[in-house]
Amino acid sequence: MNQLTIRSVNGKLLADSREVAEMIEIRHADLLEKIKGYIQYLLNGNFRSSDFFIGSTYKDNLNREKPCYLLTRNGCDMVANKMTGEKGVLFTAAYVTKFTEMERQLSNLHVPRSLPEALRLAADLAEKNQMLLIQAEQDRPKVLFADAVATSKTSILVGELAKILKQNGVETGPIRLFSWLRDNGYLISRKGTDYNMPTQRSMELGLFEIKETSISHSDGHVTINKTPKVTGKGQVYFVNKFKDEQQLA
Score class of each variant (00 low, 15 high):
residue 18 R to E: 09
residue 17 S to Y: 07
residue 62 L to F: 13
residue 9 V to I: 14
residue 240 N to H: 13
residue 136 A to R: 10
residue 31 L to M: 04
residue 225 N to A: 06
residue 228 P to S: 08
residue 185 G to W: 05
residue 240 N to T: 13
residue 99 F to T: 13
residue 205 L to V: 02
residue 2 N to H: 01
residue 31 L to S: 10
residue 83 M to P: 15
residue 105 Q to L: 11
residue 202 S to Q: 03
residue 185 G to L: 09
residue 226 K to H: 07
residue 237 Y to E: 10
residue 178 F to N: 08
residue 125 L to W: 00
residue 88 G to T: 12
residue 24 I to S: 07
residue 171 E to M: 13
residue 61 N to Q: 12
residue 137 E to F: 06
residue 114 S to T: 14
residue 175 I to D: 11
residue 180 W to N: 04
residue 152 S to L: 04
residue 59 K to I: 11
residue 67 P to G: 03
residue 103 E to H: 08
residue 183 D to A: 14
residue 100 T to I: 09
residue 231 T to L: 06
residue 191 K to I: 15
residue 156 I to R: 02
residue 210 I to Y: 06
residue 160 E to L: 15
residue 225 N to K: 12
residue 242 F to Y: 13
residue 1 M to P: 00
residue 151 T to E: 00
residue 205 L to S: 01
residue 164 I to M: 01
residue 5 T to I: 14
residue 44 N to D: 03
residue 37 G to V: 10
residue 2 N to L: 14
residue 41 Y to K: 05
residue 106 L to C: 00
residue 160 E to S: 04
residue 25 E to W: 02
residue 165 L to P: 05
residue 87 K to T: 00
residue 180 W to G: 00
residue 83 M to C: 10
residue 159 G to I: 11
residue 107 S to H: 09
residue 24 I to H: 05
residue 207 L to P: 04
residue 10 N to I: 11
residue 34 K to Y: 09
residue 202 S to M: 03
residue 12 K to L: 14
residue 131 M to L: 11
residue 103 E to S: 13
residue 154 T to Y: 05
residue 12 K to F: 09
residue 114 S to K: 06
residue 47 F to N: 12
residue 226 K to Q: 05
residue 86 E to R: 04
residue 208 F to C: 04
residue 18 R to W: 00
residue 159 G to D: 12
residue 208 F to N: 06
residue 27 R to W: 06
residue 143 V to N: 10
residue 170 V to K: 08
residue 20 V to R: 08
residue 90 L to H: 13
residue 6 I to W: 00
residue 20 V to H: 04
residue 123 A to F: 11
residue 127 E to G: 00
residue 216 S to P: 02
residue 71 L to S: 08
residue 163 K to I: 11
residue 130 Q to C: 15
residue 114 S to H: 05
residue 22 E to R: 02
residue 196 N to F: 10
residue 81 N to T: 12
residue 125 L to H: 08
residue 18 R to Y: 01
residue 224 I to M: 01
residue 85 G to A: 04
residue 5 T to K: 07
residue 25 E to D: 15
residue 246 Q to T: 15
residue 154 T to W: 05
residue 165 L to C: 02
residue 91 F to D: 14
residue 66 K to E: 06
residue 131 M to F: 08
residue 85 G to F: 02
residue 119 L to V: 12
residue 90 L to A: 07
residue 91 F to M: 10
residue 123 A to D: 06
residue 63 N to H: 10
residue 27 R to I: 12
